[in-house]
Design a protein around this nucleic acid. Structure first.
Lengths: 128, 128
DNA sequence: CTAAAACCTGACGTTGACGTCAGAGGCAAG
DNA sequence: CTTGCCTCTGACGTCAACGTCAGGTTTTAG
């Protein structure tokens, strides 16, 4: 599979894939003319990389952790990094959950103020 | 309370607070000499701003949503924005949860491979 | 009174994950 | 053959949320 197809299947840009290769996160076979060719498994790999980016990991950190994701091996140091990232993600989840609950409360209050028609003599809802 | 104290209490930098003011997210009284003075409630406000940043909202979006957080009022449009951000946060939580579970699986596998002593004749764990 | 610490206003620097553009090939279809 | 799309390698641009530095004023501790 060539780079455009992989990009489409993984939901990222072609530029991103070249960037991942530059960072050592994604290898590629080359055709004689220099075009990149990827195996099917590359799709999952790219998706995983995206997930880790979304969790706030840097390219460097992902580079450290990716091998043991695929091999199942890890040095004690790498194991500590894995645990630390897991804990960081837990913390993010907790924070986001609190923020979401806060927003839910705000939404409930705002909806109530609309539903009850308790808007004062200011801009009426349906005006315009 | 002056800016340094607020920064300490809210856990952010002085620079960040000036930036928030620049973005319209945080007002401040000024002493005759020009120094900023904040009421106690500013601490919570700053913490909330931080939470929203952590949830991926931009300054502009926070600026749109902050008023109705404090007033309880929202236009239908603002209400849609609120709901959209809430949903976005839900999606982030779901993604992060999946990523965390994936990392947990990797950690379990790696720990097992260490505990079971199933490291082959390569770099032994305790060597060096 | 004086020196340290905190504060002020600009204004430029940083960082990461790409976006975008230029110019030059490569490849299947008609 | 050529047309049109895909790909290649540089290399500069972007953007947001600050960091950092310069040069000056204000507040506070002793």
């Amino acid at each position: 599979m060539r780079i455009g197809e992989l990009a489409t299947k993984a939901g990222v840009s072609v530029r991103a894939l070249r960037y991942y290769e530059e960072q050592g996160l994604l290898g590629a076979d080359r055709s004689p003319s220099g075009q990149r060719h990827y195996p099917d498994g590359a799709v999952d790999r790219v998706v995983l990389v995206q997930q880790l980016y979304a969790a706030g990991l840097s390219s460097r950190r992902i580079l450290e952790l990716l091998p043991c994701v695929y091999t199942g091996y890890a040095t004690p140091e790498t194991l500590r990094l894995l645990a630390a990232e897991r804990d960081s993600i837990d913390a993010q989840i907790a924070g986001l959950t609190a923020t979401r609950d806060r927003l839910d409360a705000v939404i409930a209050a705002a909806e109530a103020s609309v539903t009850d028609g308790c808007l004062p003599h200011r801009t009426a809802a349906r005006q315009n």
